[in-house]
Design a binder for these strands. Structure first.
Lengths: 148, 148
DNA sequence: CCTTGCCTTAAAGTGCACATGAAGGGTTAA
DNA sequence: TTAACCCTTCATGTGCACTTTAAGGCAAGG
C-alpha cells in the first residue's frame, strides 16, 4: 500500500504520516525498490493508535517517550506502566472536565436565559448536581478498569 | 481587584486576561482613574467560563461567536441554541473518543504485553467491550441532559 | 516526447493561543 | 529620590503539530 492509500484508509494526511515516522511515533516504514514507502497493516494500526491518543490529547512528545520504551526492548515495564498511568490519570481528569463543561452548557440550554452570565444560582445548581453525582459514584467504585 | 489578583484567583495569566478582553471573550473591563483594570466577580465568572470551555476544547473563535450573539441582545436565541448544540455534540463526541482511548490504555495496562503493537485480538476485545456497552446504553436513554 | 500523477526529501510557512519584551507611567516605603 | 512593584499598550517571539512549497525522480498513457 502506498502512502496515499494509507492516508485515505486512516484519514491522516500523507505529510502527517511522514511526520509521524520522522518523529518516531510509528516504526520505520519499508521501502520499495525505488524508495517509496510500502505500508502494511501493522503500520496502519500504529497510525490509528497514534490518532486515537492524539485525539485524546496526548502530546507527540509523550507518545514518543512511551513508544520508545517499547522499542528499546529493555526491562522497562515498570516505567511504561508509570507513563501509561500518568497519561490515564490526565485523560480521566480531562474527561471529567469535559463532562463538567457539557453539564454547564446543557444547563444553559435547558434554562435558557436572555443573558449569558453564569449567575450565582446557576453555579449553585451546578455545584448541587456535582455533589449529587459524587455521592452516586461512591456506591459504584469499580476496579479501575473502564471506570466511566 | 487588580489584574494580578484576578490572575491568582483564576489561574489565568495577566497576559491571557488582557488577551481575552481584546478578543472579546470577556466584557470590557472597568478602569480606575489611572487606567488600570478593576476586575469584579462578574468578570471573574466570565473568565472561569472561558477557562472551562477552553479546557473542553472550544476554540477562541467559536467562543467569541457564541458570546457576541448574547452581547448583540437581538432575537438570536435560536442561533445561540444552535451553536450550543453544535458545541455540545462536539464535546460529547470528544468525551466518547477520550473514553475509548482510556479503555484502550486500560486494556494495555491490564493485559501487559512485551510489545506495544495493538494486536488483532486486542482490537477484537476492545470492539467486543464497546458493543457490550452500547447495548447497556440502550436501556438508559436519558433526556439529553447530563447524559454521561 | 511530453504530460500526468504518483512518489521522495528538506526547508520553510501557518494558525492558534498565548508569552515575552520594550518603553513608559503611578503609588508606596525607606 | 530612588527603588520596588504594580500597571499600561504595542510589537514581536514561541511552541506545537502539522502543511505547504521547492526541486526533483519514476512509470504509464497519448
Amino acid at each position: 500500500m502506498n502512502i496515499k492509500e494509507a492516508s485515505e484508509k486512516t484519514g491522516v494526511s500523507s505529510a502527517a504520516i511522514r511526520y509521524y515516522e520522522k518523529e518516531l511515533l510509528i516504526p520505520a516504514i519499508d521501502r520499495t525498490d525505488v524508495g517509496n514507502r510500502d505500508i502494511d497493516d501493522r503500520i496502519i494500526r500504529r497510525i490509528q493508535f497514534v490518532t486515537q491518543m492524539r485525539a485524546a490529547g496526548m502530546s507527540i512528545e509523550n507518545l514518543r517517550r512511551y513508544i520508545q520504551l517499547f522499542d528499546a526492548q529493555e526491562d522497562n515495564a515498570k516505567e511504561q506502566k508509570t507513563i501509561l498511568k500518568t497519561q490515564l490519570a490526565a485523560m480521566e481528569e480531562k474527561r471529567d472536565d469535559l463532562q463538567s463543561a457539557i453539564d454547564h452548557l446543557n444547563y444553559k440550554l435547558n434554562h435558557f436565559y436572555d443573558h449569558m452570565e453564569t449567575t450565582e444560582e446557576e453555579l449553585r445548581e451546578l455545584e448541587r448536581q456535582h455533589a449529587e453525582k459524587a455521592t452516586d459514584d461512591e456506591t459504584s467504585e469499580g476496579d479501575g478498569y473502564d471506570n466511566r
